[in-house]
Design a protein around this nucleic acid. Structure first.
Length: 258
DNA sequence: ATGGCTGCTTTGAGCAGA
């Protein structure tokens, strides 16, 4: 199974790009963040016509998450939207079990800046998610927690660690959250393999950040131990960041052996 | 170390993103 995560920064703007990428990459299950679409306007029929199924929870303008999978992979079960025990207007979580793999798709709050109320919200949201993931790990042996985490876990995940030190996305409390989630029994699939140095998943639209490769690795695929044992590759498809009207994020793709 | 893009908005300057 090929499983991927991608923040597409408006599915409305990038539906064709997503469909093209799905086909070209032969991805079986794709988790999307920042769809920015209410459920009533989600392009379900377009995905179905292309041979995929989908589950989604969204809102206009901000947030919105979805899971897209090839129809021939099977049905989804135990679909769940949102975090239990955390009242949140923002649509940031959707989960489903597909072909025996529990996929949890997260769009972690950005946090804006460490002085911001949004940073406090990010902290509270992440704490609620820790409790949620603890239960998911206990229930699902084959678990993949994927998405836009808005956290760069280590200095090597940041183009200029000294510049970013202490700033939102790379502050110590955020990195501690990432370690907490790893501590639940999850594995950062990207680090299972040798990777080219300076591999990132997000680049600012401004300041020629992408051509200069001034990016961050903030999109992640965490795998339970049994799925990590099946994982044969993890790569970030930076080609998907190129061309006309790209998202500012690139997809992260893992392959899982049967 | 700002803002520089981009998408979106009961539409056009302000916001949020990361």
């Amino acid at each position: 199974m090929k499983l991927a995560t991608w923040n597409i920064n408006s599915l409305n703007m990038r539906l064709v790009r997503v469909l093209d990428w799905l086909a070209a990459s032969a991805t079986d299950v794709l988790c999307l963040q920042e769809t920015k679409l209410e459920d009533a306007t989600f392009p379900r029929l377009e995905f179905e016509a292309a041979g995929y199924r989908c589950v989604f929870t969204g809102q206009r303008t901000y947030n919105g998450v979805a899971i897209i999978w090839r129809s021939d992979v099977g049905e989804a079960t135990d679909v769940a939207a949102g975090l239990p025990d955390f009242a949140d207007q923002a649509k940031r979580v959707v989960a489903a079990t597909i072909a025996g793999v529990r996929a949890v798709c997260l769009y972690v709050p950005n946090g804006q800046s460490i002085e911001s109320d949004k940073y406090r919200y990010k902290h509270d949201w992440c704490r609620a998610t820790t409790a949620y993931l603890r239960r998911e790990v206990a229930v699902h042996a084959s678990l993949a927690v994927v998405g836009d985490f808005n956290i760069a876990p280590e200095p090597r995940d940041v183009h200029d660690p000294a510049l970013w030190d202490g700033h939102v996305l790379f502050s110590e409390p955020e990195r501690a959250v990432f370690r907490d989630w790893i501590g639940l029994g999850l594995v950062d699939s990207f680090r299972l393999f040798e990777q080219p140095p300076n591999t990132f998943s997000w680049w600012d639209y401004r300041m020629l950040a992408f051509p200069k490769n001034r990016g961050l690795r903030i999109d992640h695929v965490l795998l339970s131990r049994s799925l990590a044992a099946r994982c044969t590759s993890c790569r970030i498809d930076r080609n998907a960041r190129k061309g006309e009207k790209p998202s500012d994020h690139a997809p992260v793709v893992v392959e899982l052996a049967p």
